[in-house]
Amino acid sequence: MENRKKNIYSLIAILTALIFAFATGKDDGIPTTGMAKSMCQEFIKKSLKSPKSAEFSSITETRIIELEKGPENYTFQVTGYVDAQNSFGAQIRTNYICKIGSSKGTDNWQLIDLKM
């Protein structure tokens, strides 16, 4: 019975470690497409009349292209739409093309171009 408890505890510890390792992911400082999408959304929100009303296209409706890939600089183009209220309170859909860049190992993103 004692051995069985030890085995169960060991199994739980191993599973917990594996879940934690996969959930946290690998952080090698390389900008990802997911980061590019999130940062474009932040830049777009700054240009909206009502940023809190913004609803962005889903990942399946958003196109993300890696234009430049390392070794130090990364550039992405994110294409999608945002539904947001205009100054009259009407919900309007606006298409966007956002070109954004970052460097490996930094959290600094530069908006290169935004067409809405």
Rank of each mutant, 00 (worst) to 15 (best):
L11F: 13
D28Q: 03
S87P: 00
K115L: 07
I14A: 11
D107Y: 14
I112Q: 10
I44P: 00
I12R: 06
G89R: 04
K37T: 11
D27V: 12
V82C: 02
T60E: 15
L111V: 05
I112G: 03
P51L: 06
S38L: 10
K45S: 12
Q91C: 10
K6T: 09
Y96W: 05
F43R: 02
I59G: 04
T75I: 09
Q77W: 04
F22D: 03
S53C: 05
V82E: 00
K37D: 08
G105M: 08
N7K: 13
Y9K: 12
F76N: 00
E72F: 11
S58G: 11
L67V: 11
T94A: 04
S58K: 10
F56Q: 02
I30S: 10
F88I: 05
S10E: 15
K45A: 13
R93Q: 08
L15A: 10
T75Q: 12
L114S: 04
K69F: 09
G80P: 01
Q110A: 14
A17N: 05
G101M: 08
D83C: 05
T24N: 13
M116Y: 08
P71C: 07
K49W: 09
N108I: 15
T75K: 13
T94D: 05
S87D: 09
N108K: 15
K49T: 13
N73K: 14
M35N: 14
E2T: 12
S102P: 05
K104P: 01
L111D: 04
F76T: 00
L48A: 03
S102E: 04
N7R: 15
N7H: 10
F22Y: 12
M116A: 09
K69V: 09
L18D: 02
A90M: 10
A54E: 03
A84L: 03
N86V: 03
I30C: 06
K5L: 14
K115R: 09
D83W: 11
K99L: 04
T33C: 07
G101F: 03
C40K: 00
Q41N: 13
L48F: 02
I59C: 06
I19Q: 03
A21S: 15
N108T: 15
R4V: 07
E72H: 11
M1V: 12
S58R: 07
C98K: 00
K26N: 14
P71M: 07
S38R: 12
N95T: 08
A54G: 06
S103E: 14
A17F: 11
I65H: 11
I64A: 04
L48D: 01
Q77D: 11
W109I: 03
M35Q: 15
E61N: 13
M116C: 05
A36L: 00
S57M: 03
Q77S: 12
F20A: 15
P71W: 05
I112R: 06
L111E: 07
I30K: 12
M1A: 14
K69L: 08
K5C: 06
G105S: 08
T33I: 08
G105P: 05
Q85W: 01
T94S: 11
I59M: 09
Y74H: 06
I65Q: 14
F22P: 01
L114C: 06
T75A: 11
P51C: 07
A54H: 06
F88E: 03
S38P: 00
R4P: 00
K26V: 15
F56E: 02
N108H: 15
Q110Y: 13
E72Q: 14
Y81L: 01
L114N: 04
T32L: 03
